[in-house]
Nucleic acid binder design. Structure first.
Lengths: 157, 157
DNA sequence: TTGGGTGCAAACCCTTTGCACGGTG
DNA sequence: CACCGTGCAAAGGGTTTGCACCCAA
């Protein structure tokens, strides 16, 4: 799905919902679709604001909510208090692995893990609706650079 | 590990760290160890404050931090903006399944899932330090009661 | 006695909301 | 032209910090 497709879908959503396609919404959506990784509202605000100072952080929040409603963005909570947003249209469900050294976020998916989850909790009488799996560790680069606890700890407590 | 053991461990921690065993810390620790499930700072504050009105929420936060430092409490973020605390001393690593209807939190553990996680991300060059797995769905009771989306939706969009 | 501990209020961070002005359909 | 959208500032919720008084060791 190209940037143009996504923008079109966003405009169509606004139209259908009786909302207006404003200059700000267009610029914020473009900046969002241009990101390759997870962005915070603040981060997106800085990207847009660098070129268009008249756009407020509040509008970024409001537009991100619209993008979610349009099904074009997912909001993720990684427990550090702020929300990160990622594109939703093109990708299937996936989980995340976060490097504790450099903060890089990598996506992965495993049907095996998900099947096992379902199996494990069925015994408890639960029926899964959705899940959130976050792995934390050292990425290849940070391992190679010898950063982090991996270097001196044989068994990490 | 009994309540008394835990209290003793807490006092020993304070002692070793050159900190003081105050009336407030004792009361808050007792209230925390008396919980059976996950509590928020606010929730613990209400439990203590019901009987001892002179204890401030701030002191609850500070004592929870001490309990974490002492290795007696774990802090969990379930993405709703506030932290929940659980006992740490007695239990091994586990994950959580949260009922989306009644909010009940159940713990579970699976070495199979964890082995699979390790295997999956090794291909990506990652080395896992820790992880966080949250399953969301309907618990047995809520399923039985016919609550939730399961009742009318065949395929949930 | 002395340094850490407490409680209150205020600050803090992220996010949302109230309101008067501005711009889209 | 009627609303919806915007920006600012202010409020909001959860958590932390500054400060004067208090108390455990």
């Amino acid at each position: 799905m190209t940037m143009q497709d996504k923008l079109l879908q966003f405009r169509q959503y606004l139209n259908r919902a009786g909302l207006k396609a404003t200059r700000q919404r267009e610029l914020i959506a473009r900046a969002f679709f241009a990101t390759t990784t997870h962005v915070s509202a603040e981060g997106l605000y800085r990207r847009v604001g660098g070129r268009h100072p008249r756009i407020g952080l509040v509008t970024v929040y409001r537009t991100l909510k619209l993008l979610k409603d349009a099904g074009l963005a997912h909001e993720r909570q990684f427990g550090d208090g702020r929300a990160l947003f990622e594109h939703a249209s093109s990708e299937r469900h996936h989980d995340h692995i976060i490097c504790t050294e450099c903060g890089k976020i990598t996506e992965f998916a495993s049907v095996e893990i998900e099947a096992l989850q379902e199996q494990v909790v069925r015994r408890l009488g639960f029926h899964i609706q959705y899940h959130k799996l976050e792995l934390y560790g050292l990425c290849r680069d940070c391992s190679a650079a010898g950063r982090g606890p991996g270097t001196h700890a044989i068994g990490v407590g």
